[in-house]
């Protein structure tokens, strides 16, 4: 958590913002995220009109398009309750980049009201719901990749580890150059594919070298990137979103 971050008391209900990558590629992670919250007795609302946070356009310099998409999201989450996001990258966009995006616009105060309600999933589980996890799975060893947004912008990499450390049978293995970017960077991976490829190859290798059975990350962009390479080379562990991993290891009833 950031030093100046304030957290609310446990609410009766929350919104869930699924993110577009989870929607299409990793929906189980979104589902697991909602289930982890519901299990703590909090009602989850998933507005069906949500789409994307707008980050791809914002990071490509297309601010007007990013603003339209951001405003459409604002309309989906009208109630004054927390908005939980299972991605530090999208959460960072909505909490810290939206006010930049709407700087000097009439919508700024409305945007700030929205941004202040945005929480990344693991920080919400740790600081607001104060979850206590009981590990039901067999002993395993995992590598954790905290995204750049998780480490820096949102400062929630500690919360990622905190949750994994609550699981008695899970050992976290540390990869070389743990804090280095995996090379995804959204449109960067397409625009500067050769550099991105060089970065992901190094990252995937350092993860494979740990001998971990699973790669866990809180961001699906990194996961898609690193797992994509691990699957390509056939070396190294399977990747999983942290929500899916936590849910699978702590869920007593097979769903």
């Amino acid at each position: 958590m950031k030093p100046d971050q304030q957290y609310p008391d446990k609410p009766l209900s929350v919104y869930f913002f699924g993110t577009c990558l989870i929607d299409l590629i990793y929906p189980q992670a979104g589902l697991a995220g909602m289930q982890l919250i519901q299990r703590e007795g909090v009602k989850v609302i998933f507005p069906q009109d949500q789409t994307c946070c707008g980050q791809p356009a914002w990071n490509s310099g297309y601010r007007e398009q990013a603003r339209s998409v951001a405003l459409a999201q604002l309309d989906c989450f009208p109630q004054d309750i927390p908005i939980v996001v299972p991605s530090a990258s999208c959460a960072g966009m909505m909490r810290y980049q939206y006010p930049e995006l709407f700087k000097d616009t009439p919508q700024l105060s409305r945007v700030k009201g929205f941004s202040n309600r945005v929480f990344e999933l693991t920080e919400f589980l740790v600081h607001v719901l104060k979850v206590k996890l009981k590990d039901l799975g067999p002993p395993t060893r995992v590598a954790l990749h905290a995204s750049c947004s998780a480490q820096r912008e949102m400062a929630v990499s500690e919360e990622h580890s905190n949750l994994l450390q609550q699981l008695d049978n899970v050992e976290i293995l540390e990869q070389e150059r743990k804090r280095e970017c995996c090379g995804f960077g959204g449109t960067f991976a397409v625009k500067h594919a050769e550099i991105s490829n060089a970065m992901v190859e190094d990252k995937a290798k350092s993860i494979a070298d740990t001998g971990a059975e699973k790669l866990v990350s809180g961001d699906c962009g990194c996961l898609m990137n690193i797992s994509g390479n691990l699957q390509h080379t056939g070396q190294g562990p399977e990747g999983q979103h942290i929500a899916t991993f936590l849910w699978e290891r702590t869920n007593a009833t097979e769903s």
Partner: peptide, 25 residues
């Protein structure tokens, strides 16, 4: 170039929007 060093990401059979509806969220 993406798949030069990566396997292409697999699109899920159902979106989170669908799963959420099915779960009654």
């Amino acid at each position: 170039v993406w798949t030069r060093v990566r396997k292409a990401p697999a699109i899920a059979p159902k979106t989170l929007h669908e799963l959420a509806r099915e779960m009654g969220i």
